[in-house]
Design a binder for these strands. Structure first.
Lengths: 151, 151
DNA sequence: ACTTATATTATAATTATTATTAATATAATT
DNA sequence: AATTATATTAATAATAATTATAATATAAGT
């Protein structure tokens, strides 16, 4: 954990940004809840536990900053809120998501499944791909099993 | 055009919804601007030209309804607004998008490029895919050429 | 034409996000 | 260590997008 904080600190410094206590507290929350997909409000409430004096706007600014530096990715699953998701260390691309339309759970897929597709886009459309967003909507394993049982 | 309106009318009736003049005007705007990715506000302004008395909330409700019936897809490219995009007739899946980070243009890819990827998700993760969202962020052909010229 | 459920308008309320501003903290320099 | 310039923050206020409410109007079947 400290190691990753340290790396993020360096990334900030490289662009002459500071890792203030508020920013650090925010990053810590993101690291602790790496599996989740927290909204700004969620993050705010969790950071408040560590640093009660922090303001919501600061959390927004911090998340925006981390987003610009590609430390977190800002995603939107179609409910009105933006969610913030730490990039895996060293990951070139954003990971993919499986959103269950029954229970709302969100799974992550870290493998890059799109290499072939990106080649097609590059060659056939002449579009130079920098990043991607891929989300599948469907029914997760658990909900499928639950349905079988009750039917 | 009339043919497609008619089909949509039937789809609404099948779920016992009515095709009111307001709804029809909204659908017409979507059909006329099929290539675009209009926000609710955009749609509202365009519908107002045909039906000046329409209210913004009605447009929102109509878009929401069309969205539920899978006649349009609601998408979000990361700027704060939802955009609404007509499904191609008979399309099982949502089409893909290429968003240019230079000029902001949005191209559509109608081909389904994800068949293989969906099989992997299905088999390896046990996730039953119902739909997908795929957006590539990068640099479009035009902007690439523009850069070459000015460099 | 009448009826009844459904949809609409107009407005208010909510929610998410961003901007402002004055105060504070930090880093760099002397 | 004091000074100065710069960056950051808290505490609002402001804005933008969307949703809810309640009274009125309308579509579509009888």
């Amino acid at each position: 954990m400290e190691h990753r904080i340290d790396r993020i600190k360096k990334q900030l410094h490289a662009q002459s940004y500071k890792l203030t206590p508020q920013r650090e507290a925010t990053v810590r929350v993101l690291l602790e809840r790496e599996e989740d997909h927290l909204s700004a409000e969620n993050v705010f409430l969790l950071v408040k536990e560590k640093a009660p004096e922090i303001g919501l706007a600061t959390v927004y600014r911090t998340l925006e900053l981390l987003s610009e530096l590609k430390i977190v990715d800002k995603i939107n699953f179609g409910d009105g809120v933006s969610r913030y998701d730490l990039r895996k260390e060293g990951a070139e691309h954003f990971h993919h998501h499986l959103v269950c339309i029954e229970c709302g759970s969100v799974e992550e897929i870290v493998d890059d499944l799109l290499e072939d597709v990106e080649k097609i886009v590059q060659n056939d459309w002449g579009f130079q791909v920098k990043d991607h967003r891929l989300t599948f909507h469907g029914i997760c394993k658990q909900c499928q099993e639950a349905t079988v049982k009750t039917t």
